[in-house]
Design a binder for these strands. Structure first.
Length: 478
RNA sequence: CGGGGCGUAGCGCAGCUUGGUAGCGCGUUUGGUUCGGGACCAAAAGGUCGUGUGUUCAAAUCACAUCGCCCCGACCA
């Protein structure tokens, strides 16, 4: 019956032959999203939104563990507030949506729909912060933002998207820098442990950094087509915003000082990263920790005496153990269900039929490698728990191996150009914008980041041959 | 914003070159047999061919315009 499967996979494009088409096919056919009547905006359907909810719960827990509190700021920002930080407004102005009318009346001052909230939040911080005793302020908000993008793709770039944005204010530069690094590490461990996506952490070039930041730190992941996806960023804003928005405090010594601020965010784009990191030609593969459904029960010959009852009993047992489990008792053939749930990326499948009930066992099949186990019913919960952990780790290791196979050190632009066709080039760079632009024009690749604690891989710039200052990753990116 | 592709039943598509009764597959509905890798038989429902204007006795088909979507590039935390 292998032939049937080949017919099935023609329903979604092959990811090696047409990766973009594969991506679109998979998210549409698994019912994660739908296009809407608004250009560039998507509907996140329940199966997709469940992934976001799992991400939110886990990140929110980690934010609170590191001392942050949630708040909510307005969607609208008056134009005069946006104008105050020069680099920031220059960076965002081209993609801002404006509200000009309330009902039929024209507004005296236009309102911007937030593309990010530094401006409105900093203006509030300037009111709330008077003394060193008010610091630090460690707030986060879960919100939607709007950026008027010209080209969009579901999850990866949409005009409206969901995210969290942390905004903190500190007494000293060192404290704010430490916060920037703390949150980068929160993101790194979340992405690697929870999403099973290996990331490369490092600093962005001046060209690529956040508009208005002193320094931007990023987490870069490699997708299966070798392109980079920026999974999240953490910004050290120095005193730029504090000066623009007049956030000052009276120090212990009685001196008026400017604050130092940070901001950090991750978005629904991570869901796109999840899909493009783990999926295969049969569809999605979710790491167990983030999977909307961790195990699906498929009753075989379910109209035979006792099969459905046993399936429901096993479901209750697994649910009671905290496993996200579903039982598919719909009127479809078993074969159809196998393919459907594989496409939807459920990490484990449990088959139970008359033969199994007789032997007091069930069949468990892994989504990632199709390995089949026969498990005695009395060991079920323990087996499933440990198998979910095994799959979680296996997916991370597979993604890491794939990335390592496609990263290499390059010493000239020809090598760099060849490498970035399907992977990351690691090279020395002089740090000058001219070389960065030249490489972009010649190869389509941009600087992704300058990683921490990497040994130099040479002494001269891959482009100009002058003295190099930093190890840098170059790649084509989303 | 540039280049390419596409809008026909819920979904995927054919039909357009050479104008003349709206087609196929999947899904859906009804009944029956099935069920361990996308089952089978029988019957049925489902369409202002993206939109507008024009050419014509006649337009899904030709022309012009327009809207939308997808991919590549440019641009972009």
């Amino acid at each position: 019956m292998a032939k049937r499967n080949e017919e099935f996979v023609t329903h979604i494009a092959s990811r090696t032959e047409d990766f973009p088409q594969w991506y679109t096919d998979v998210i549409m056919k698994t019912d994660m999203v739908d296009y809407s009547d608004v250009r560039g905006c998507m509907v996140i359907k329940p199966y997709g939104y469940a992934v976001w909810e799992n991400i939110q719960h886990e990140l929110d827990r980690r934010f609170k563990e590191t001392g942050h509190k949630n708040a909510y700021f307005p969607l609208f920002i008056p134009e005069h507030l946006l104008q105050k930080e020069k680099d920031h407004v220059e960076g965002f102005a081209p993609e801002v949506a404006w509200v000009t009318h309330g009902g039929s009346e024209e507004l005296q001052e236009r309102l911007c729909v937030r593309p990010t909230s530094e401006t409105i939040i900093c203006s509030m911080y300037s009111r709330w912060i008077q003394s060193y005793r008010d610091l630090p302020i460690l707030y986060n908000q879960w919100a939607n933002v709007v950026r008027w993008e010209k080209a969009t793709r579901p999850f990866l770039r949409t005009m409206e998207f969901l995210w969290q944005e942390g905004h903190t204010a500190h007494a000293t530069s060192a404290e704010a820098e430490a916060e920037t690094m703390t949150m980068l590490e929160v993101y790194r461990s979340f992405m690697e442990d929870f999403l099973a996506i290996p990331v490369i952490c490092g600093r962005k070039s001046d060209k690529e950094k956040f508009a208005g930041a002193v320094a931007t730190y990023t987490l870069e992941a490699m997708m299966q087509d070798g392109k980079a996806l920026q999974m999240g960023t953490s910004h050290f804003l120095g005193d730029h915003f504090a000066k623009a928005y007049d956030i000052t405090y009276l120090s212990r010594e009685g001196k008026l000082e400017y604050c130092y601020t940070t901001s950090w965010g991750v978005t629904t784009r991570m869901i796109g990263g999840l899909i493009m990191t783990h999926g295969d030609d049969r569809g999605l593969i979710f790491p167990p920790k983030v999977a909307p459904i961790q195990l699906v029960i498929l009753p075989i010959a379910m109209h035979k005496e006792g099969v459905l009852d046993k399936a429901y009993e096993l479901k209750a047992q697994l649910a009671a153990a905290g496993i996200r489990v579903e039982c598919d008792d719909s009127e479809q053939s078993a074969g159809w269900k196998f393919n459907e749930w594989e496409m939807k990326g459920v990490p484990l499948r449990l088959e139970v039929g008359p033969k199994d009930i007789e032997k007091r066992e069930v069949v468990i099949v892994r989504r990632d490698n199709h390995e089949k186990s026969f498990v005695p019913m009395e060991n079920l919960v323990d087996f499933v728990k440990s198998m979910l952990d095994t799959v979680q780790v296996a997916l991370y290791n597979r993604a890491l191996a794939l990335r390592e196979a496609r990263v290499s050190v390059v010493h000239n632009t020809d090598e760099l150009n060849a490498r970035v066709q399907d992977g990351f080039a690691k090279a020395m760079w002089c740090g000058n914008r001219e070389c960065e632009d030249k490489i972009k024009a010649a190869t389509g690749a941009t600087t992704r980041c300058m990683p921490f604690n990497h040994e130099p891989v040479g002494e001269t710039c891959v482009c100009c041959g002058k003295k190099a200052t930093a190890v840098t990753y170059f790649a084509k990116s989303y």
